[in-house]
């Protein structure tokens, strides 16, 4: 997976977020403050513009630029959290021009660690971690099993999707939904839903 692949990933994310903007916002309206779709749309649109302007030469540089742009443009909790995820993954890739599934797995673990350090959320708190952690684990398992890259990304996307859906019966313990207490039960977490979109976009980039 080279720089072009990761640029395609960001493009796929921007398209998916734009298409799902209202859906994400409605999920957020139910248990948050109805801005998640609009914020991510603004962030990934800005990230695409930043990439067009700077043309980074390595996957690592590309992801660090995407992360910094998200931190600068999105606001809310999702800006720093997603921004940190992309930056940590980019930093883990270093200067490498080509990323193997194993290296992607390492990068994903770094992203997860960054998000958890910042947001202090554990699995089961009804946050983006509930999609990110299973996706990272599924990718690691796929690498251990020696799956082909497309299959590995397929597994990660499926795990993220399943993780997001599994937030429905949970009671939120972090983020704005936690203010609702038991009333947060019965709704999909918007952050987990958008994380699942990111992995869906990764799979889509691989099948281009």
């Amino acid at each position: 997976m080279n720089t072009q692949f990761f640029a395609a990933w960001i493009e796929e994310i921007a398209t998916a977020v734009r298409a799902q903007r209202d859906h994400l916002t409605q999920l957020d309206a139910a248990i948050g403050d109805a801005d998640h779709g609009a914020n991510l749309d603004r962030g990934f649109t800005a990230a695409q513009e930043a990439l067009a302007g700077a043309s980074p030469q390595t996957p690592g540089a590309l992801l660090v630029l995407v992360g910094s742009t998200l931190i600068r443009k999105v606001g809310g909790a999702s800006g720093p959290l997603y921004g940190t995820a992309f930056r940590e993954m980019g930093k883990a890739f270093g200067e490498a021009p080509e990323i193997s599934p194993a290296e992607l797995s390492t990068g994903l673990n770094a992203a997860l660690a960054g998000v958890q350090r910042l947001g202090a959320a554990a699995e089961g708190d009804k946050t983006m971690v509930d999609a990110l952690a299973p996706a990272a684990e599924a990718l690691a398992q796929a690498v251990r099993d020696g799956l082909k890259p497309e299959e590995a990304l397929e597994a990660a996307a499926a795990a993220a999707e399943q993780g997001a859906r599994a937030t429905v019966p949970l009671q939120a313990r972090k983020g704005r939904a936690s203010y609702l207490g038991p009333r947060s039960v019965g709704h999909e977490d918007p952050g987990a839903a958008s994380t699942a979109l990111l992995f869906g976009a990764l799979k889509a980039a691989a099948s281009r």
Binding site: D35, R42, G76
Partner: peptide
Amino acid sequence: PGEVFTSPVPD
């Protein structure tokens, strides 16, 4: 001021 109901950004 951030966007509506969204915190401001660090910049």
